[in-house]
Amino acid sequence: MARADDLTLDVRGLETRFLTPKGPISAIRDVSIQVRPGEIVGLVGESGSGKSVTGLSIMGLIDAPGEVVDGEVLLNGEDLRQISARRRRQLRGDRIAMVFQDPMMTLNPVLRIRTQMVEAIRAHDPKVGAKEALRRCRDALAQVGIPAPEERLDAYPHQFSGGMRQRVAIATAMLNGPDLIIADEPTTALDVTIQAQILAEVQTLCRERGTALIWITHDLSVVAGLAERLYVMYGGGIVEEGPVDPVLDHPLHPYTDGLIRSVPWHNEPGRPLNQIPGMIPALDRMPRGCRFHPRCDRADEACRQPVALREGPDNRRVRCLYPLGKV
């Protein structure tokens, strides 16, 4: 793997805990993610696998009763967990931005789009004049395919469709030309046609500007066409990582394999759909050792002990004692 100072984002051993009435519970544990400048990385997993918590932990946006308790989050070599709250606020929205899942909720319903976009510029550079700020907002809206951006700046969020709102959110995230954008399932709530448009626009924008992107999703078909590298999460940890095509074509981890087989396109019509037996365990009832072993047909006694990430071929890594291919 590349050295830390060549990376836009280098997350190492991240652990986030939530205080619950039953005691502290780790929502994610030992999560390490590396993103090179301009790289598009997919973060895939089922609901509850810890994808969103990972994104929020990187941003430092975990609210009480949650807390990031361990690990490093190096953004351009600067550890976001060590710097002051003030410095963190300076970096957020400027060098690292985030887009959320539900476009109906991410924009403030009582503020005009212009207010919500201009403040993102002014928060980082108060010296920018009103005209200049508005011009940048207008350009940003035009770039994500919003017609008549000049007039739309004066509109309120409820005057936009879901897809348009998500475009506004993406345009806002892009305003200051960040080095990295974390996108937490931004197209999940949208129609497939809108999703395809937005994916294409985001891909183009990131390429043009050299912005790195972490695309969090549960939809393998989305990352297959978008991402260069892939991280697969299960039960709060990374179980497999590597370049997209090898991982999807020849998964090493039984969970990745199950996830791919669950996509209906692999199925002949009329035959029962594939599924992974069992359910993702609740966070307070995570099994010891490999967290997937109760649902895995390859597991044995050894899987009850902690399993480390192992290096595989083609820059791949897998957290499994009995991977599917050759390691």
Partner: peptide, 21 residues
């Protein structure tokens, strides 16, 4: 609400988040 989270992700100060948003 998500819009508060989004405002924080934009780097808006807490004062403005509370006083305006």
């Amino acid at each position: 609400m998500d819009y508060v989270r989004f405002a924080r992700a934009k780097g808006i100060s807490e004062g403005r988040i509370v006083g305006l948003h």
